[in-house]
Amino acid sequence: MNLPEPRAILTLLKPITWFPPMWAFACGSITGSETINQHLPIFFLGLLLTGPLVCASSQAVNDWYDRHVDAINEPDRPIPSGRIPGSWGLYIAIIWSLISLYAASYLGVIGFLATVLALVLAWLYSMPPIRFKNNGWIGNLACGVSYEGLAWITGATLLSGGSIPNKPSLLLAGLYSASAHGIMTLNDFKAIEGDRQMGVRSLPVQLGAKRAAQFSAAFMLIPQILVMILLSYWDKQGYTIVIGVLMMGQVFLLVDFLKKPIQKALFYSGFGVPLLVSGMMVAAFAVNSMELGS
């Protein structure tokens, strides 16, 4: 019986993708508690769950159901290259999902239900016949809700002892979920040809590269503008200015991306997106300061 290589398993689980939901969970946690240091076990278990477990499960699921597309776009990926043989890609996705549920059982009912919802979205995103990712509008929305909004709200809820997050926290979770739609579109520019052949209607396939880039930029920028408006309304001008400066850096980098989206999407992911997610943390501390001041 052929077994997968340990390094191939790690590649399948894509550690580089674990950061966004872990970051969102941390941002939500900051809005939910003034004293995270008093809830460190819950905080670190939540980080473990959102990144190395649930997000990793979603990556394994996606690679299994994308193995035919990857054979065209990325033939060196673990499954099409044969480094993960047979049905081991599916087995790993199932095992990792079950481990995620087991870990979630230590976070109480709220943590467990949030994990179930995240895993359901992960499987439906990739698995036929539903396969959200076959439509870029729906698939990117599902990812945005799961990676950012759900992780944020879960962190806020768990770190506040099970209380419903306050209105500012919920608003920010929703807005940054919308911005994640644009971030997810960045990943689609590298796979246009394979997606077109396999019937995956990503935004670059539906709209063409340049229009998809424009929509991606709008999805990333407009929610941040609304965040700045809200922070100003909440009398948090200092935080608003910081996010504004971060947005200026994004706009500067977007100029090149909009001219050459296929060539510059990866570059913008590496240098522009970190400015956006830095603003998430700034906004989270703004909400935290509102609690401190109340």
Rank of each mutant, 00 (worst) to 15 (best):
N2Y: 06
T35V: 05
S58P: 13
A218I: 08
L53A: 08
L53P: 03
S33M: 02
L275Q: 00
M198F: 07
P204E: 11
F43W: 04
K259H: 01
V120A: 01
S29F: 03
Q224H: 14
F215T: 07
P165V: 08
G111Y: 03
N134R: 15
V109H: 05
P168I: 04
A8I: 00
E193F: 03
L121S: 06
S58R: 04
G28P: 07
G162I: 06
S289F: 01
I42Y: 10
N37Y: 15
T157R: 12
S57W: 03
R83Q: 15
Y268K: 00
R77W: 08
V120N: 00
L258T: 00
W123A: 03
P6T: 05
I95M: 10
S160F: 00
K236V: 01
G272C: 02
L90M: 15
G155S: 09
S216P: 06
G194L: 10
A283L: 03
A114R: 02
L186D: 00
L253D: 01
L49F: 12
G162W: 13
G28E: 14
P6S: 03
G89W: 13
G194V: 08
A60V: 06
S289M: 05
A173T: 08
L276Q: 05
A212N: 01
L150D: 04
E148K: 07
C55I: 10
I9L: 09
Q263N: 07
I262E: 02
I92N: 10
N140F: 09
P6A: 02
P75M: 14
Y91G: 07
I153N: 02
G82Y: 02
P21S: 13
H181W: 15
G293R: 13
M248T: 03
S29N: 07
A173N: 08
L113Q: 03
L276N: 02
S169R: 12
W96Q: 09
F215S: 05
V120S: 00
F19E: 09
N62K: 12
L226Q: 09
K210M: 01
Q206F: 06
F271N: 11
K264N: 14
